[in-house]
Design a protein around this nucleic acid. Structure first.
Lengths: 152, 152
DNA sequence: TTAGTTATGTTATAATATAACATTTATTTA
DNA sequence: TAAATAAATGTTATATTATAACATAACTAA
């Protein structure tokens, strides 16, 4: 079990890492993309697209829905963020180089998100798909419930 | 691995089963709820809420978005259907008495959905949550990719 | 039978997301 | 380096998904 939780101190690290990955892969981490990624990372938890748009407008008043959705698409495509399908929300990824899929624990009480990626989960997905002769492209695993802290 | 796929011939069975479950649990399977469940089951694959609304309007022209969403909520709550979070769509359940959670294989090519529920998946989810001291309420697992038939 | 609850009707609007086309900026190549 | 190409962003409009709020009707239990 590997736990990842983004800390404020890790934001710059994550931004630098994104920069490196982009350079290595011939991707353009434009100011807009940096700004949006930075806003998402700063948030700490998950963000809704239109809340993010409101934040972005403080930097660039001309920003509009396609501005944010296109940027989110870029960041998603290259693994810098993930989409939480059951919340229609987005969250930064602290380890974009490690893997494509991320699995999440979502606390219904405090809204905190915990990544819960593990090889065991990867394996059970692999076994499930291979038994069905199914070639997986993307796996979404989101477990909602109550986190440790909220249980006390 | 248990595979479930709804066949046309199973629709009536599923409707009757829903009826029995409702009676047993003091739930009211009203005409509206039956109609909507029937429309979803007849579809075979997944349905979008507004497409369903269009179908329902043929039976009840006064149907409006809240009509369909409230009915979907009832059907979801009692496990007669499931929501595919990554598609914003709904699909009938052929075995509502068996379990609450359903896991899905989603073919990006032919749009066919296959349930892929298994104890192994249940177990890995249990292990993941217990290691995190997390009390799960609902698990979403949706694996998108290419199905067997579409590979040929 | 009337009080309470559950379900439905209805209007309006909120929240999420994309299509389509114009313009600008970066990259490639002649 | 200039022109051609590709990639990113700007902009308008609209599509899609979902819920709030309040009125009425239908069932249920006392």
């Amino acid at each position: 079990m590997t736990k990842y939780t983004i800390r404020k101190t890790d934001i710059n690290k994550a931004l630098k890492q994104a920069d490196i990955i982009c350079k290595r892969n011939g991707l353009r981490l434009t100011k807009l993309r940096q700004d949006v990624l930075s806003l998402i990372l700063k948030e700490g938890g998950y963000v809704k697209a239109y809340d993010l748009l409101d934040e972005l407008k403080k930097i660039d008043p001309s920003a509009k829905p396609p501005t944010i959705y296109r940027t989110l698409d870029f960041l998603l495509e290259h693994g810098f963020i993930h989409k939480l399908q059951s919340l229609n929300a987005f969250i930064g990824c602290s380890h974009p180089q490690d893997h494509k899929e991320c699995y999440f624990l979502i606390c219904n009480n405090c809204q905190k998100i915990e990544e819960c990626c593990s090889k065991k989960i990867n394996n059970v997905i692999k076994n499930t798909t291979s038994k069905n002769n199914f070639v997986p492209d993307q796996a979404v695993l989101e477990i909602a419930g109550t986190c440790q802290q909220c249980l006390n």
